[in-house]
Each structure stands twice: as C-alpha cells, then as structure tokens.
Simulated scan of single mutants.
Amino acid sequence: MVVNQTFESIKERFRKADVDGKIEIYTTVQGLTVEQYKELLRMFPIKYLDRLEKAMG
C-alpha cells in the first residue's frame, strides 16, 4: 500500500530527527489520518510538548 509506505518513511524521518525536526515534520506533513498523527505524537519527547503546542498555535 503506497500510503502506508509513505507513512513508514515519514515515521522513520520523524524517529531520526531532533526535536526541531520532529516539530517541523509534525506541523507540515499533510494527509495523515488521526491515528498516524497519534503514532507520531507517541514518539515525541514529552518534555518538549510545549514547543510543539506553540508551533501549532
């Protein structure tokens, strides 16, 4: 499934990115399902959630 392969590559980039990179990916990628966004969010370091919230603001 192409969509799932694309999400897998996004997830891998997200996993390898630093906090700023994770924020950029999370706030700019489009077309994901709610579940896929939740999956990325589970990989996000909790202590930086305020930065993510501000970026989404």
Rank of each mutant, 00 (worst) to 15 (best):
D20F: 12
V2T: 09
F44M: 12
Q36T: 07
K16L: 15
F7Y: 12
A55N: 06
K11G: 00
E12Q: 12
V34L: 05
Q30T: 10
K16A: 08
R42G: 11
G21Y: 09
I10W: 02
D20V: 04
F14D: 01
L41K: 09
K22W: 11
N4C: 06
N4F: 06
E8F: 07
V3C: 03
K16P: 03
E39R: 00
E8C: 02
K11P: 01
P45H: 07
R51A: 15
T33W: 00
D50I: 11
F7C: 00
E12S: 15
Q5S: 14
D18Y: 03
Y37N: 05
S9Y: 07
I25V: 07
Y48N: 14
V3D: 09
L52F: 04
L41S: 05
K54R: 14
F7M: 01
I23P: 02
L32Y: 00
Q30S: 13
V2Y: 09
D20C: 01
K11W: 03
L52T: 04
M43Q: 14
T27R: 08
F14C: 02
E8Y: 04
T33K: 09
Y37M: 08
L52D: 07
M1V: 13
T28E: 12
Y37A: 01
A17E: 01
N4A: 12
V29M: 04
T33G: 11
R15W: 04
